[in-house]
Simulated assay, not measured.
Amino acid sequence: MSDELQLARLLFPALVSELDDAFAVHATEPTLADTADAAIAAAVQQFHDTELGRTGFDAFEVPGRNGDISTKVAVAFDEVRRIMTWIGGDVPEPEAFVAAGVDAGKLGTALAGNSDLAIVPAPHGIGAEGWRSLFRAAARQPGSQLSLADPLVLAEEIALSFPVLDEVPEGVVRVPIDAAGESKVYWTLRAIPSGAAPAVLGLSHLHGPHLTIAEMLMLQLMRLTRGADPLDARSFTWLDGVLTDGRFAARHVFDAGERNVRVTSREVGNQGPHLGARPPVG
Rank of each mutant, 00 (worst) to 15 (best):
E93N: 04
A36I: 08
A118E: 10
P92A: 05
A139S: 15
A191I: 11
D232V: 08
A76H: 02
P121C: 08
I119F: 15
V281Y: 12
L7W: 10
N66Q: 14
T109F: 06
G227Y: 10
G246E: 03
E157H: 13
A196V: 12
S204C: 04
L211W: 04
V73C: 01
A197L: 13
S194R: 12
R251L: 15
G282M: 12
P198M: 09
A96N: 04
I83Y: 01
E61P: 01
V281M: 11
T50M: 00
V102K: 01
H274V: 14
F47R: 00
V168P: 03
P151C: 12
N260K: 15
Q46H: 10
S194C: 08
A22Q: 09
N260D: 08
G246T: 02
L7T: 10
V98D: 03
E4C: 03
R278W: 12
T71A: 11
D58S: 08
A104G: 02
V281W: 06
V73D: 00
A110K: 07
P279G: 10
A39K: 04
V172F: 08
S70H: 00
L275I: 15
E129M: 09
D255I: 14
Q141C: 09
G202C: 06
V153H: 13
M216G: 08
K184T: 12
G282S: 12
